[in-house]
Write a protein that binds this DNA or RNA. Structure first.
Length: 485
DNA sequence: TGACATT
């Protein structure tokens, strides 16, 4: 009964999150009541209201709820496609207190005309899940510290709903944890008191306590890491979701594919399984100083470059790039670049940066032509260990083979592959090595299985800046420059 | 600067 209502609510909320076409006619002459009105408390609670008669819209409901305080936002849920009233709403008061009053007074207490069941008024699922309002990320823990130790550390600041130390596949701590308080205020207090307050034995810097990333932020962070680690100079690094570079876009697309392939953790209604948490942890930690990828740990041997320290399901891409990060020495400039995601170039203003990147113009065009088909093979190639290793040096059909010059010295086959993975199905990729020195010759080949992918890659990557160089990406010259006769 | 599937 109440169960049913809840799961229904969840479904409805999920539907709400799906893209919906612009409302057509049926929502009435009034603008939908979703416009935020005034300001709300930082810790305001978004309420889910269920068991509303379908003939009542926002303006009909307003008086009922207004008696508990000023309404910030009230939105009746409608079917995204039919625009049909779904019999429930989201309600946010300006004051947190009003929400509590309304819940107390109304939830299960009153039945609206025509309804078989009493009205439901309770915090929306989004209030307890997915949001970053009371969940903390804790980094720089001692790897010996267990959930109990973390609890002990955080208990003084409030009621803890959940505490999870992130662990690797072998069960060893990753030196970080999630701690969920019962309220935003408690979480905030813990941040103030604990962040940077102490350095755990064995940790490389002081304790990190911050609100956990939302899914969006996590995705963005990962994208930025990858982009940053590639040393791409792009002003979009600080502008969330600004579709600046075709490459960033491709990465985003690819990640979406990866994420949805590996499980439904993007779906707000689905609780993370411990397994997912571990995978997410492994990935999202990359940007933090505590990561296994950080130069502190044993990544200083060239053989590790690009050969994913974590040959996992979720993050071969990330790891592959991450492998490029720590340059053992001899490339201070690049190291700087990769570490902070910016190119140490005289030109760092967005304007100049843009002019440096012919490839960045026409992003929309790129987006439009980015074929869905090109994404699909990625989904296949990602979760499986890449079978690319053996099939080197295979040329694709004419028009599918790229010649790439000005590769960073450190780029190996893996990095090359991963850099071009977003654009299509790669048949082979090869960085040429000087056989005497075993050093890269800074050029290589990538072959796609279709000419469109090759063209897309050229569009996006030719002129692409990595470190101090800009890539040259062209079609490989046809095999026989002469003629068959 | 360099330059098109190598030993």
């Amino acid at each position: 009964m109440a169960r049913l209502t809840e799961s229904e609510a969840r479904r409805q909320q999920q539907q709400l999150l799906q893209p919906r076409p612009s409302p057509v006619g049926s929502s009435g002459p009034e603008p939908p009541g979703g416009q935020p009105d005034g300001t709300k408390d930082l810790d305001a609670i978004k309420l889910f209201v269920g068991q509303i008669p379908r003939n009542l819209d926002e303006k009909d409901l307003k008086p009922l709820f207004e008696q508990f305080g000023r309404i910030y936002e009230l939105t009746v849920l409608k079917d995204p496609y039919t625009g049909m009233h779904k019999g429930c709403a989201f309600l946010t008061y300006c004051a947190r207190d009003s929400a509590i009053k309304a819940q107390t007074a109304l939830h299960e207490q009153k039945t609206l005309p025509g309804m078989a069941r009493p009205i439901q008024v309770k915090p929306a699922d989004s209030e307890s899940r997915g949001g970053r309002d009371r969940k903390l990320f804790v980094g720089m823990l001692n790897k010996q510290q267990s959930e109990e130790d973390v609890l002990r550390l955080f208990q003084p600041f409030g009621v803890i709903d959940e505490c999870t130390v992130l662990r690797g596949p072998d069960g060893s701590s990753k030196g970080c944890a999630f701690v969920k308080f019962s309220s935003h205020t408690e979480a905030q207090a813990a941040i103030h008191a604990l962040h940077g307050s102490q350095t755990m034995p064995g940790a490389s810097s002081s304790l990190v306590v911050k609100f956990a990333d939302t899914d969006k932020e996590r995705t963005l962070r990962r994208m930025q890491q990858m982009v940053g680690q590639l040393g791409i100079l792009t002003p979009s690094l600080t502008l969330p979701f600004s579709p600046y570079s075709a490459y960033a876009q491709a990465l985003m697309q690819q990640q979406t594919t990866v994420l949805s392939t590996s499980g439904s953790y993007l779906s707000p209604g689905v609780a993370f399984s411990p397994c997912h948490i571990q995978q997410i942890g492994a990935v999202s930690l990359n940007g933090l100083p505590a990561t296994p990828i950080a130069p502190a740990s044993g990544l200083h041997s060239p053989p590790l470059l690009g050969t994913t320290a974590v040959p996992g399901l979720v993050a071969p891409i990330t790891n592959g790039f991450a492998g490029v990060v720590p340059f053992p020495g001899g490339h201070p400039a690049l190291e700087t670049v990769y570490a902070n995601g910016l190119v140490p170039y005289p030109a760092q203003s967005p304007t100049v940066a843009e002019t440096l990147h012919p490839a960045f113009s026409g992003v929309q065009q790129y987006t439009a032509m980015y074929p869905t088909a090109a994404i699909t093979p990625i989904a296949h190639s990602v979760p499986q260990p890449p079978p690319l290793l053996q099939q080197q040096q295979r040329e694709g059909p004419e028009g599918c083979n790229l010649f790439i010059y000005h590769l960073p010295q450190e780029f190996g086959d893996t990095e090359l592959t991963q850099m071009f993975l977003p654009f299509g199905n790669i048949i082979s990729s090869k960085v040429f090595m000087d056989r005497a020195t075993n050093q890269s010759k800074c050029f290589g080949f990538v072959s796609f299985d279709n000419p469109a992918s090759a063209q897309t890659a050229i569009q996006a990557m030719n002129g692409f800046q990595i470190g101090m160089k800009r890539l040259k990406v062209q079609l490989k010259r046809p095999k026989d420059p002469g003629h068959p006769y």
